[in-house]
Design a protein around this nucleic acid. Structure first.
Lengths: 336, 336
DNA sequence: CTGAAAGCGCTTACAG
DNA sequence: CTGAAAGCGCTTACAG
C-alpha cells in the first residue's frame, strides 16, 4: 500500500483501529481462541488494511525464544555439502525455522567469528560442518553456551555430541571389495589430505585390503586436496606408478570426477581401462563421463537427519545423544 | 564458564559488577570514546568475567536497524548458484552482515513464504535469484515494503531494479562464433526450458547465426531442464538428428556436463567428434572429461557484485539504479 | 565523562 | 472475553 513505509505500523495502531487493546491484537495474531470470532475478524481486517507486518524479532525478544538456526558449512563448492545444506534447509524451514547460513571455506578464524555471531543472534540451535583442523573442544564450547548443536559429516572427537554423517569405513570397504571382486589387487586411494572423514575412509580401505590378504602399499595412497584438482593430480600421480595401477577408490565423488578428467587426458576409459569408484553419490555422479560407480550415502538425507536431530534436541535438551549414520550402498555404474 | 546458563547476563549485571550505569556499559560495548579508558577497562573486565554476551537482536530492536540480509536462491544443486552464493555471502559477512538463507527449489510458493518471513525478520536487504515463473511485479512488491533489493542472474521485467547478472546474449554469441570459426554450420542449442536467461541466450544464438548467414533451424534447439539430466536428454535428441550434428552450445555448464555424458555413452569424444561449448565456467568445467570449453562469467564475482550493489543501496536508498553485467569471455579448453 | 529515564514492538500474567 | 501494566535487553537523547 504505502510506497514509503515511513511510520511502521505496530500492534498499537492495529489496536486503536480495531478499537481493542494491544493485548487483544497480540492474542489474535497468535491465533488464540480466547478472542471472540467477531473481534478477531475486526482485528485481522484492521491489520491488513493498515498493512501491518508482524515484528518477529520483537516478539522473540519478549518471549526469550528464537526460531533461527545457525548453519555453518565448510565447503559449498563441493556439491556434496550443497546437497546436505539443501536437505537441512528444507526440513528446518518446514518446521517454521529460519536459517542463518555461514560459509567458512575451511577457515577456522571465520568459523569462530560466525559461531560467535550466531550466539549473539540468539540462534535456537546450530548445525555445524566443522572446518578442517577444528578443535574437538569446539562442540563442548558451543554446548556450554546453552545452544543445541548437531555436528555434521566430520565428527568431532570422541562422539559425545549429536551427529549426522555416514559410515565411512564401511562405505570404502564396500568400494574396495567391489574392486577386489572384479579381480583387482593393486588398488589406489585418491585424494583427501586430512580430517576425520579421511581417517575413517582410509581405515575402510585398509580393512578391506587386509580381509583379502592384500598387503597395504603406502605408495598407492595419493593424498591431495578434496577437490577436482586434487583428484586430478592424485590420479596422475597414481597413473605414473610402475607397475601400472588399474583401479582406485576415491576419497569422494569430487576427487573421482577430477580423476575421470585425468584418465580422459591420458586416453584411458574409466570402466574399461581403469576401474574407479567414488564416494557420496552426488547428483553429478549419475551423469559424469562415464557415469560414476560410487558409494551412495544420500547427501540430502544426511542434511535432513541433521535437522531432525537438532530439532529434537531443541525439544528435549536432556535427551541422550542421537546419531545418524547413513548406511552406504554401492551403486554400480560405468566407471568401475 | 557456566555449564548451564540459567540466568543470561545482561548489561545490567555488567553495570552493577563494574559499578557503573547500564548506559555506560552500552557505550563501552559500542566502543564509544566518551568513556574514560579506566572505566571502559573495568567494564570490559566485568563483562568477560560474567560471561556476558551481547544481545544483538535487542539492540537492533531498539535502534530500529538490522544487520541481516535475506538471500534467496532458486537452485543450489546447480554449482553455478552455489558459487554465486559463496561470493555473495563472503562479501556480506565481511561487511558485518549476517545471511538469512533460503532455497526455493524453483517453488513460487516457497519463495513467497520465505520473502514474507524475511520481511518479518526485519531484513536490512534482500538478494533474490527469482524462481522460474516469478511475476515481474515481485520486485516492486519487495521495494514497496521498504526493503532494498537486488535481483540476481534472472532479470525481472523491464529492468527498473538493481541487478547483477551477465551479458547472456553476447556470451552465447561468442560461443557460437567460436564454433562457426571452426567451420561448423549446423550448431545445436542444448537445454533450458523457460525463463529470461534462456531467452537472452537463445537470442545470442540466433544473432550469431544470422550474422554468419546461417538460417535458423528450430529442430536444432533442444529444450530440456537446466540440469545434467536435461543436458543428457537434449544431447541424445540432437545426436539422433539426420543429417548428423557435430556441434552445439549449451544453455549452461550443467547441461553441457550432461551432454558430455551422452556423448561418452555413444563413444563420441567431445573436442574431436563433436564440438561442445558450455556457459558459466563453474569450477567443474575445468576438470570435466574432457575439460569444457565455455563462456566464463566468473560466478562468484556475480555474487560479490550483487552484495556490493545491495550494500550501496542500503547506504543510499535514493541512488539511481545500479547494474552489474559480467562480461563474458570465451575459455577454450578441450571440448570444442 | 556518567547516570536516570524513556522507549523499540511485542507477550504474558493478572484483573475484571 | 478483554484491558492495564510490567518487562524482554538494549540505545539514546538529556541532564549534570
Amino acid at each position: 500500500m504505502s510506497p514509503t513505509p515511513s511510520k511502521p505500523v505496530t500492534i498499537m495502531d492495529v489496536a486503536s483501529a480495531a478499537k481493542v487493546s494491544k493485548s487483544t491484537v497480540s492474542l489474535v495474531l497468535q491465533g488464540s481462541d480466547l478472542i471472540r470470532d467477531e473481534t478477531a475478524e475486526r482485528v485481522r481486517a484492521a491489520a491488513t488494511r493498515l498493512g501491518y507486518v508482524y515484528n518477529r524479532r520483537a516478539a522473540e525478544l519478549r518471549r526469550k525464544s528464537s526460531k533461527t538456526i545457525g548453519v555453518v558449512i565448510n565447503d559449498l563448492m563441493n556439491p556434496f555439502f550443497a546437497e546436505v545444506l539443501v536437505g537441512l534447509e528444507r526440513r528446518l524451514v518446514d518446521a517454521g525455522f529460519v536459517v542463518l547460513m555461514a560459509h567458512t571455506g575451511e577457515s577456522l578464524e571465520r568459523q569462530d567469528n560466525v559461531l560467535r555471531t550466531m550466539r549473539e543472534q540468539h540462534a535456537a540451535g546450530i548445525a555445524l560442518c566443522p572446518a578442517l583442523g577444528t578443535s574437538p573442544s569446539l562442540a563442548a564450547t558451543v554446548r556450554s553456551w546453552g545452544i543445541p548443536l548437531v555436528v555434521m559429516v566430520r565428527s568431532l572427537g570422541s562422539g559425545q555430541f549429536d551427529y549426522a554423517g555416514s559410515d565411512n569405513r564401511l562405505g570404502v570397504r564396500l568400494a574396495v571389495e567391489h574392486l577386489i571382486a572384479a579381480g583387482h589387487r593393486r588398488i589406489g586411494f585418491l585424494g583427501g589430505r586430512t580430517g576425520p572423514v579421511l581417517e575413517q575412509r582410509l581405515r575402510g580401505y585398509k580393512t578391506a585390503l587386509a580381509a583379502a590378504r592384500i598387503p597395504f602399499d603406502a605408495s598407492l595412497v595419493r593424498y591431495a586436496d578434496a577437490t577436482r584438482d586434487g583428484g586430478y593430480e592424485a590420479a596422475r600421480a597414481l597413473l605414473d606408478l610402475q607397475p601400472p595401477v588399474a583401479a582406485a577408490v576415491s576419497y569422494n565423488d569430487l576427487t573421482a570426477l577430477g580423476a575421470l578428467s585425468a584418465l580422459g587426458e591420458r586416453g584411458l576409459r574409466a570402466g574399461v581401462d581403469f576401474a574407479l569408484v567414488g564416494f557420496d553419490n552426488v547428483l553429478d555422479a549419475a551423469r559424469s563421463n562415464p557415469p560414476l560407480t560410487t558409494i551412495d550415502i544420500r547427501p540430502s538425507e544426511v542434511g535432513e537427519h541433521a535437522a531432525a536431530i537438532l530439532l529434537e534436541r531443541i525439544e528435549e535438551p536432556e535427551h541422550p545423544r542421537r546419531q545418524y549414520l547413513a548406511e552406504p550402498k554401492l551403486i554400480v555404474r560405468q566407471s568401475g
